[in-house]
Nucleic acid binder design. Structure first.
Lengths: 258, 258
DNA sequence: CGGGCTCTTGACACCCATCAAAGTTTGTGG
DNA sequence: CCACAAACTTTGATGGGTGTCAAGAGCCCG
């Protein structure tokens, strides 16, 4: 229980995630196996990417959680997106030194160098078609997540936002093989949750208790269980990214890359 | 005063916008001149892109305003981003049929075929380096705008959100040459404004009046004037995309494209 | 064992939503 | 060009959802 979030290894983790997005060939596997090197540990609250920073080497999160966020002058904080094991930083980005955001470790985080992935994307070799396709889909899902976040913050109540966030996490962690039944680790303080869903800490607390009272979730020290996914989905108007391997033909994805 | 938003022409409009993002060569100009064709008019409320739709041909907005938005089951609406003259639809998108959003005309809108731009981006010829670079920067700015929107909705008050939106519009319209001093057209109902800033119509109305009372803005039937930009910036914590032609070396942008 | 986070709870205030209705502007057809 | 309808804006009254402040309880870690 020392490092509850540790996954088996970078290659395994990424293999699980990417193969849920596109089918991977042997060459893809060999590519992913090359990701063992250059591992690095980051302490909690460490800044993985500073505001306005460019050109730091791309990295893959092996274990731990981080967040892409912005802080206002007066200290108010808004988290744009959580970064989970299997997520990648700076791989499929556009040239966007413009997006004033930073990446901060929310727990202890272990990353590994992901230059190989960025390179694969750039070279776009046919034998790595699976990897490239999957990375592009992952990027598209990331974009969709930002839109979800906008809807949550703009038009949903505290209860809806919270339910929606939990469902999103269940889905994303599920892709990385980090969900057991409907239980998963949630190594976030309520203050962090508040900075995601745009509420105060106190109200996050009350919202979680309301969900607990209604037997929708079970939450305790670093882990959650979703007790009634259907009702949560109804509450949150949740739609998972429609991407379950094959719903998009790899050809189309590649065509757009060329 | 029949069509207050009409700009001089697609080529002129784009030239102004793109040349504020990167320097354009003669070949770029010739490319942009080819955009006259295939013009089309869209009635107000017409859906330019349906939810989940893919592969419609890319278009450039020549005149009028549109919005990328999502509607919840129960009718609540959230606008992700306004699309203004000089904005482009479906040009620099990733493969993202995943982002469940649609594009709707908020006024009468005139578009023109932008396949040439998408093609230039794909081919990435050296002689069109300016166009390609500018389109990429525009896409990055678009991304940054989504992050701004998240901060607005998650962590800012009604007053701050509204001020921020007006400043964003001033900046974006300025790029397209559609701002006079600090006056610009704002052909939106308060209901639409509400769907952008995540408030009720009534409260948008009160917020605008508060801004007017404080002599920060002057707003009347389809147009606004920002009376005190500095104070508005202070209220909204507004930071324009740091992209004023040259702040980013074209080389870097291109390097990332290759 | 103590000190600091984090979580929890209560009281209270305020921002914003909702409901309702009156003005005002816009658009349209006669 | 007028008249009317529809859409939009404005205003008031009221209520509810969240924020803020404060204090206590639980927990983790040194």
């Amino acid at each position: 229980m020392r490092t509850p979030l540790r996954a088996d290894g970078p290659a395994e983790l990424l293999r699980r995630r990417l193969s849920s997005l596109a089918s991977l060939a042997d060459a893809d596997m060999r590519l992913l196996a090359g990701l063992q090197i250059q591992r690095r540990a980051h302490a909690i609250t460490e800044e993985l990417v500073g505001v306005g920073e460019v050109g730091r080497s791309p990295r893959l999160i092996v274990s731990g959680w981080a967040a892409r966020l912005r802080t206002l002058q007066d200290g108010r904080r808004q988290i744009f997106r959580l970064l989970l094991p299997g997520d990648v930083i700076g791989v499929a980005d556009r040239a966007n030194p413009l997006a004033w955001s930073s990446v901060v470790a929310l727990t202890r985080v272990e990353t590994t160098d992901a230059a190989l992935l960025a390179q694969a994307l750039k070279e776009n070799r046919p034998e790595h078609a699976g990897t490239v396709g999957a990375l592009l889909i992952a990027a598209a899902i990331e974009d969709a997540g930002l839109l979800d976040q906008i809807v949550r913050l703009g038009r949903q109540t505290a209860l809806e936002r919270t339910a929606h966030l939990l469902l999103e996490l269940r889905w994303r962690l599920g892709q990385a093989g980090l969900v057991n039944g409907d239980r998963f680790a949630l190594p976030l303080t309520q203050e962090v949750l508040a900075d995601i869903v745009g509420l105060s800490v106190v109200h996050v607390n009350r919202t979680l208790q309301s969900l607990r009272r209604d037997r929708l979730i079970n939450i305790r020290s670093g882990a959650v269980e979703l007790l009634d996914v259907d009702r949560l989905v109804a509450i949150a108007d949740f739609h998972p990214p429609r991407t379950l391997a094959g719903s998009i033909e790899p050809q189309r994805v590649l065509a757009r890359t060329a």
